[in-house]
């Protein structure tokens, strides 16, 4: 590299020698161009995120019939957002403590919506009992026995609170959420990229949160019975039979 070897830089002097100053300007320009290129490339190379949204800070009111088991669910029969809404609490917690004792009852819930193209959820902030339901809800419909390969994620983050709400970077968070009572769900992606979600329960239809913690965010195969209850699909299988792939 040819340059004027007589030039000498002293940082506390007001001006750098001309040749050194020119070289530094070129170097800084190159570094800034590199930084801009890296920023652009990394931003563009991010994989698409799963659909979903969380209305953080926006409270809405929902009325419907509450089901406590296996995971708290509100069936809304009218209004702007009809259908089945899974219920969770603020932070990384399920809504069991808020919904206890209201199974089969009509309630009014104030909370924030979380949803994607298939499922709806409410982060419950207030719950007001309205009395007994006018009619009981129909039971679940069995759809058959199937095997699925996918990833166990926590439904709250995955439905829209976090992007991505899956994969290794999110694993510790998913463990906290599922241990805290957020319903675990099997995320299944078809070869064509279509996503489906199956809420996990054991053979008796009970919650399995504490029994799936070691398999969260790992590829897993589950063989079990699929049941539709409202808009929600559940996969009934003994967690001990889940296979880590």
């Amino acid at each position: 590299m040819s340059h004027n070897d007589d030039e000498f830089y002293v940082g506390y002097l007001p001006e750098a020698p001309a040749g050194i100053a020119a070289h530094v300007k070129r170097s800084i320009l190159l570094i800034l161009l590199l930084a801009a290129g890296v920023a652009g490339a990394l931003a563009a190379l991010q994989s698409p995120f799963d659909p979903g949204a969380f209305e953080f800070g926006i409270d809405r009111t929902f009325e419907g019939v509450l089901l406590e088991h296996p995971y708290p669910l509100l069936v809304v029969d009218d209004g702007e957002y009809p259908g089945s809404h899974l219920l969770v609490a603020f932070g990384k917690f399920g809504a069991e403590s808020l919904t206890a004792g209201h199974d089969g009852k009509r309630v009014r819930i104030t909370g924030s919506r979380i949803w994607n193209d298939q499922e709806q959820m409410i982060e419950v902030h207030e719950l007001e009992p309205l009395g007994d339901a006018r009619q009981s809800l129909a039971g679940g419909m069995e759809l058959g026995t199937f095997s699925f390969t996918g990833e166990i994620v926590d439904s709250k983050c995955h439905l829209g609170v976090m992007k991505p709400g899956r994969g290794k970077p999110h694993k510790a968070c998913a463990i906290l959420c599922i241990r805290g009572g957020v319903p675990p769900v099997l995320r299944v992606e078809s070869e064509s990229g279509e996503l489906s979600y199956l809420f996990l329960v054991d053979e008796q239809g009970n919650a399995v949160n504490d029994r799936v913690l070691e398999m969260i965010a790992e590829p897993v195969e589950i063989h079990g019975e699929v049941e539709r209850r409202g808009d929600v699909l559940t996969l009934r299988a003994d967690p001990a039979s889940y296979k880590l792939l």
């Binding site: 920023a39 931003a43 698409p48 949204a53 992007k163």
Partner: peptide
Amino acid sequence: LYIGLFVGLGAALRPEATPETLIIRAFGTL
């Protein structure tokens, strides 16, 4: 420059991304 480009381009190309994710990724990579 870096944060503006990463967050701006990230939000434009991946509008479904949350601001927190873009901030975490922008500052980590920077």
